[in-house]
C-alpha cells in the first residue's frame, strides 16, 4: 500500500536525492521518536517537543509525497512505464520483507509484554496509544517503498534533469506550511489548557 500526491499540473516537482533521503530519515525516525517522547514524559515542554517531532515527520512525508520516487511507489500502475513498474515491484518486495519483520517483532513483543508480568513491559492500552501505532504503521507502509527507491535508484545526470519541471519559488508554500505548523501547535496547547 502506498500513496502518491499528484500535482495539479501533473508535472513531477524537482526533489534532489539528498533532500528526499533526508526527508525519509525524518519520517522513519521522527515519528517513532516523537511518539516515544510523548509516551515517557509528563512534562509539557517535552510533550510539545514530541509533538513537534511527529509534525516534522508528517511534513517530511508530504515533502516526499509528490516526488519521483513516491510516484513510482504510489502512482496508478497504468501511468507508469515498464522500468518504473519493475522498480515498484522490487520496492514492494523490500517493503514486504521489512514490514513483515517489524510486524512479527511487534507481535512477539506484545505477547511477552502481556504474558510475563515480572518484566513489567509497556503495552498499548489507551485509544491514543493505538491511534499512534495505527498512523505509524500507515506512514511506514507509505514511505518504505520510496525509501528503497531513494537509496537504490541511480542518480539522474544533467540531461535527465533537463526534462524536469523548473524549480518554483517556494516562498508562499513555506508560509503555508508554517501557518499549518503554528496552527497545529496552538491547537495542541489549547487542548492541553482546556483538558488540564
Amino acid at each position: 500500500m502506498s500513496f502518491y500526491m499528484r500535482t495539479a499540473s501533473g508535472r513531477i516537482p524537482h526533489r534532489s536525492r539528498v533532500s528526499v533521503r533526508a526527508a525519509i530519515i525524518a519520517v522513519l525516525a521522527g515519528y517513532p521518536a516523537g511518539c516515544i517522547v510523548q509516551l515517557v514524559t509528563d512534562h509539557v515542554a517535552l510533550d510539545i517537543f514530541g509533538l513537534f517531532l511527529v509534525l516534522v515527520s508528517v511534513l517530511a512525508f508530504f515533502w516526499v509525497a509528490p516526488s519521483y520516487v513516491q510516484r513510482i511507489a504510489g502512482e496508478v500502475p497504468s501511468a507508469l512505464d515498464d522500468v518504473e513498474r519493475d522498480l515498484r515491484h522490487r520496492a514492494y518486495a523490500f517493503s514486504y520483507t521489512v514490514l513483515t519483520a517489524l510486524a512479527a517483532a511487534a507481535v512477539f513483543y506484545l505477547a511477552v509484554a502481556n504474558d510475563d508480568t515480572r518484566l513489567t513491559l509497556w503495552a498499548p492500552q489507551s485509544y491514543s496509544h493505538w491511534n499512534a501505532i495505527f498512523f505509524g504503521v500507515l506512514i511506514y507502509s507509505f514511505i518504505m517503498p520510496a525509501a528503497w527507491l531513494a537509496w537504490t535508484l541511480p542518480e539522474p545526470d544533467a540531461e535527465d534533469l533537463e526534462g524536469e519541471a523548473p524549480v518554483r519559488k517556494g516562498r508562499a508554500r513555506i508560509w503555508l506550511w508554517s501557518l499549518l505548523a503554528v496552527g497545529g501547535m496552538t491547537g495542541f496547547v489549547l487542548a492541553r489548557l482546556i483538558s488540564g
Partner: peptide, 21 residues
C-alpha cells in the same frame, strides 16, 4: 510514452528494457 528518466536509465545500462519497450 515513457518517463524521461527511463530513457536515461536505459541509455546508461542501469536497467534493461522489457521486450515490449
Amino acid at each position: 510514452g515513457v518517463n524521461y528518466q527511463t530513457v536515461g536509465y536505459l541509455e546508461r545500462g542501469d536497467y534493461n528494457p522489457s521486450l515490449e519497450l
